[in-house]
Simulated assay, not measured.
Amino acid sequence: MNFVAFERAKQGTGASRRLRNSGRAPGIVYGGATEPQTIEIDHNSLWHALKKEAFHSSVLDMEVAGQTHKVVLRDVQYHPYKQQVLHIDFQRVDDKTKLHLKVPLHFVGAEESPAVKADKCTVNHVMTEINVSCMPSDLPEFITVDLSSLKKGAALHLQDVPLPKGATLVVRGSQKNPVVVAVVPPAVVLEAGAAEAAAAAPAKGKGKKK
């Protein structure tokens, strides 16, 4: 994906506010051997780009002053209630340096799994993205996870997620192999059982007439 940014000369809170009022979003690009550079981007174009999953998990081509730079999105600050980007951060990409980035998970096959098809279970996606480390050329836009073999009572853990060539997991926190997908038994079975028990019990307050 590619987008156009413009050099931003004026900085500060007042300048950023005027920039937003003019339909631009302030930002910064940093990293690599070059000094950080303040930029501005057309807000409407940026807003639509941010709705695309690939914009968050791909190496992007950013054109500034006639030159194209390889960057990845690092941070976005949104207005608390307006549909407005307050600030955006990009990091320059070096072809010889590994990236640490979150990659979205695309789940397929759940409806065909024994857990869903036979046992009417619910598949709960505990995680929807994972952290990976890889070279920019190996960065996947997303990772497909096949759930067609899930069974009742089973769970898919982080170490079970198939990674593309060149990518390794980046695990943070005390849990080294957290649950990615959990299988939840159908609640309707429990409700039906409770209803049958209630129907079999004698009705309260109803005795023989004297």
Rank of each mutant, 00 (worst) to 15 (best):
M62C: 14
A155V: 03
A203K: 15
Q83K: 15
A49L: 15
K209M: 09
V126C: 07
S174T: 12
P36K: 05
V71H: 02
F3A: 02
S174D: 10
V59F: 02
P186M: 01
A203G: 04
P114Y: 04
N131W: 12
L101T: 12
H125S: 12
A199G: 05
H69G: 05
A110G: 09
P80L: 07
L169F: 12
L19N: 03
Q159E: 13
N44L: 15
A33V: 11
G14M: 08
L99R: 03
N124A: 06
L73S: 07
I88E: 05
V64I: 15
K70I: 01
F3R: 02
T97N: 09
T68L: 04
K10V: 12
L60D: 08
W47R: 08
C121Y: 02
K165V: 12
N177R: 02
V126A: 11
G109L: 10
K208P: 04
S137P: 03
R18H: 10
T168W: 00
G205F: 01
L158K: 01
V145K: 02
Q91W: 05
T38L: 08
L169R: 01
A155L: 09
P136K: 00
L60T: 08
K82L: 13
A33S: 12
Q77S: 09
V59N: 04
E111D: 14
V93C: 07
T144G: 07
T34K: 14
L139V: 10
A187E: 10
N124P: 10
K151Q: 14
K96G: 08
K117S: 13
A9S: 11
H100G: 10
K102L: 12
E53P: 06
V179C: 09
Q175H: 07
S174Q: 11
D138R: 00
V29S: 03
D146S: 04
V64H: 01
G14N: 13
A182S: 13
W47D: 08
S16T: 05
Q67F: 05
A182N: 12
S45L: 13
P80H: 07
A199C: 06
V123A: 02
P140F: 03
L46S: 04
A5N: 01
R172C: 04
H43E: 13
A5H: 00
E112G: 13
A192H: 13
M1H: 14
A203V: 13
Q67Y: 02
A15G: 03
A200L: 14
K102E: 12
W47Y: 09
A192G: 10
E129C: 14
P104Q: 09
G109M: 11
G12E: 07
I130W: 00
L156Y: 03
N2K: 15
R92M: 13
A5S: 03
V116Y: 06
I39Y: 01
A201W: 05
A15I: 06
E191M: 10
K51P: 08
Q175I: 13
V188Q: 09
L101M: 15
Y30H: 08
D42K: 07
H87Y: 03
Q83V: 11
L147P: 09
G12N: 03
L19A: 01
N131E: 14
S57F: 02
K204C: 04
Q37G: 02
D75L: 06
V93R: 06
